[in-house]
Simulated scan of single mutants.
Amino acid sequence: MDGLCQDRKIDMALNLWHQALVKGSEPDVTMHNIIIHGLCSAGKAEDALQLYFQMGRWNCVPNLVTYNTLMEGFYKIRDCEKASEIWARIFKDGLQPDIISYNVTLKGFCSCSRISDAIRFLEKALHLGILPTSITWYILVRAVLNNGAT
């Protein structure tokens, strides 16, 4: 499934997913994350969100990868509101965002032309002790150079 998703053959991956379910396989969080990532990469974040909502059906608990992938998927289709709702779910489900979560959100803000929000978000992360990486700085510098700090 992962290879199919990486090759952007999401329909084939979903077919394999359904075949596995029919044969009695119980998908774990990794299998869910693979399909969620494939759907998000194909611009089908809403479908990915529906799969996320069904995870409990298999007693499967989403992890930070699940949330980061969903946020990235919604930012990709420029749905900043839904991405923010996913951010809130991280905390609601008792998880703590990591630097990847922050980078996804920073990049998402920048892609939605919310550079000033991204900078404020980084300040909040720094205050919480989240240390930026070179990727963090690349995201922000590139956004400011391309769009200015608006």
Rank of each mutant, 00 (worst) to 15 (best):
E26N: 12
L126E: 15
S113D: 15
H32T: 06
N147M: 13
R89W: 06
W87S: 04
S84W: 10
V65D: 02
A48H: 03
G43D: 10
T66I: 06
R142C: 02
K9G: 02
K82P: 09
Y75V: 01
L95G: 02
T136E: 01
T136I: 08
N103W: 01
L128S: 11
Q54Y: 13
C40Y: 06
W58G: 03
S111D: 08
A125P: 04
T150S: 08
L122I: 10
F109G: 00
L140I: 13
L140E: 07
V104A: 00
Q96M: 09
S113Q: 13
I34D: 00
L140Y: 08
C112G: 03
I10V: 15
G129A: 07
M55A: 11
S101L: 03
S101T: 05
A83F: 05
I86D: 06
K92P: 05
K92H: 13
A48S: 08
I100V: 10
S84I: 11
D47H: 08
S41A: 10
R78S: 12
L51F: 10
Y52W: 15
W58D: 07
Y67F: 08
K92L: 14
I77M: 10
R114A: 14
E72D: 15
E85F: 07
V144H: 01
R57K: 14
C40A: 10
A125T: 09
A13I: 04
A118F: 05
L106M: 05
L49A: 09
Y102E: 04
A42H: 05
W17E: 10
P97H: 00
A88G: 04
T133H: 01
G108K: 00
D7Y: 03
V141W: 02
D79F: 07
F74P: 07
H127W: 14
S116N: 07
G129C: 03
R142L: 07
F53P: 02
G24R: 11
D79W: 05
G24I: 13
W17Y: 12
N146H: 14
I77Y: 10
L16K: 13
Y52P: 05
I99V: 13
V65M: 01
